[in-house]
Simulated assay, not measured.
Amino acid sequence: MRKRILLTTLSIVLFGIIINNSAYARKQKVLVFSKTLGFHHNSIKQGIDAIQKLGLANKFEVDTTTNSTYFNDKNLKQYAAVIFLSTTGDVLNNEQQAAFEKYIQAGGGFAGVHSATDCEYNWPWFGNLVGAYFAGHPNQQQATLNVTDRKHISTEHLPEQWKRKDEWYNFRNVAQGLNVLIFIDEKSYDAGKNKMGDNHPIAWYHKYDGGRSFYTGLGHTEESFAEPLFLQHLLGGIKYAMGRKK
Rank of each mutant, 00 (worst) to 15 (best):
G131W: 05
I182E: 03
V147A: 07
D63S: 13
I5S: 04
E160R: 14
E222I: 10
T9N: 13
W125D: 09
A80T: 03
Y205M: 01
V180W: 05
I104L: 06
V147S: 07
T88R: 06
K165V: 11
I184F: 02
S115K: 04
L129K: 07
E223P: 00
I104C: 06
G219A: 02
G236F: 02
I17E: 11
Q78I: 07
W168N: 11
N93V: 03
I12C: 08
T216E: 06
K163A: 13
G192K: 11
C119D: 12
E160Q: 15
I182N: 02
I44K: 00
L129F: 10
T155R: 11
N42E: 14
Q96A: 09
Q176G: 06
R212T: 04
A57I: 04
E167R: 00
G55F: 05
S68C: 00
Y70N: 12
H137S: 03
D149V: 11
Y240D: 02
F225L: 07
K3V: 03
D190W: 06
K246W: 10
V62T: 07
H200K: 10
F100Y: 14
V91P: 04
D209S: 14
T155S: 15
N42F: 06
L6T: 02
G177W: 08
N128M: 01
S115L: 09
I202R: 06
Q176Y: 08
N58F: 07
N67E: 10
R26I: 08
T144G: 07
D73R: 08
